[in-house]
């Protein structure tokens, strides 16, 4: 946590870290595992290493990919009104806009936000971290991969989709009987795992590792 503003004056550039949010300079010192280095004035977390982070993130990312396959294939929700029933999968929800015309682009967005982007991010993170765990140099293109994985972060909206489900269900709960399919529970777990994986990843540690081993 020591980040003496004066010390930052004449440190070598390699040991200096600048807050990406407010440009304040600090002496980059790796905190203890589980500890954090936080910017003094804007409170952005600068460095937050976690024990065994790479291995755990890889394991969680694999889980994300497997669960997502299950969550898109199995039935998600079902309704039953007056003897008429219908089941929908996550993919059906995304493709609900395939009516033609401009609506198709909305299907593409929704499928991207809730299915494709979380899976692509997980795959990219596995690609970046696997060689680091094995103690080797990064695979070709690892930096670009990690850059994209970070850029896609705000566009991964699985957790928003699950809240959307809650809202949609309360809208129709008085009109219809609702059945929860296996995919619903998979998706609920998936949301927790995505949040967990993101919270374990420490950007600064990973960039440093990518730099040193390349």
């Amino acid at each position: 946590m020591d980040a003496g503003p004066h010390g930052a004056l004449d440190l070598p550039l390699d040991e200096t870290i600048a807050c990406p949010q407010c440009d304040a300079l600090y002496h980059a010192r790796m905190p203890q595992e589980g500890g954090r280095m936080v910017c003094h004035r804007c409170h952005t977390v600068l460095i937050a290493p976690k024990r065994n982070a790479y291995l755990r993130v890889i394991a969680l990312s694999l889980t994300i990919i497997i669960l997502m396959v299950g969550a898109t294939v199995f039935p998600f929700l079902g309704v039953n009104v007056m003897g008429f029933s219908n089941k929908a999968s996550v993919l059906d929800s995304a493709l609900a806009f395939l009516d033609g015309g401009w609506m198709i682009s909305l299907s593409v967005f929704v499928a991207g936000f809730i299915v494709m982007i979380p899976v692509i991010r997980a795959a990219m993170v596995i690609y970046v971290l696997t060689p680091l765990v094995a103690g080797r140099g990064p695979w070709p293109g690892a930096r670009a991969m990690f850059r994209w994985a970070e850029d896609l972060r705000p566009w991964s909206m699985a957790e928003i989709f699950i809240i959307g489900c809650a809202v949609a269900l309360t809208k129709i709960v008085s009109l219809a009987r609702i059945e929860f399919g296996p995919a619903f529970w998979m998706f609920a777990v998936l949301v927790v795992i995505i949040v967990l994986a993101d919270s374990l990843m420490d950007r600064w540690t990973i960039w440093k590792a990518l730099e040193q081993k390349s």
């Binding site: 309704v79 609900a96 806009f97 936000f113 949609a168 809208k171 129709i172 219809a176």
Partner: peptide, 25 residues
């Protein structure tokens, strides 16, 4: 908080996929 506005779009997506019950609804 910006991303959370997408909720309404997802609600529409879920409802349109789910509520397809012939002429009943």
């Amino acid at each position: 908080i910006g991303r959370w506005s997408m909720i309404d779009v997802f609600v529409v997506a879920i409802l349109s996929a789910l509520v397809q019950l012939n002429f009943a609804a």
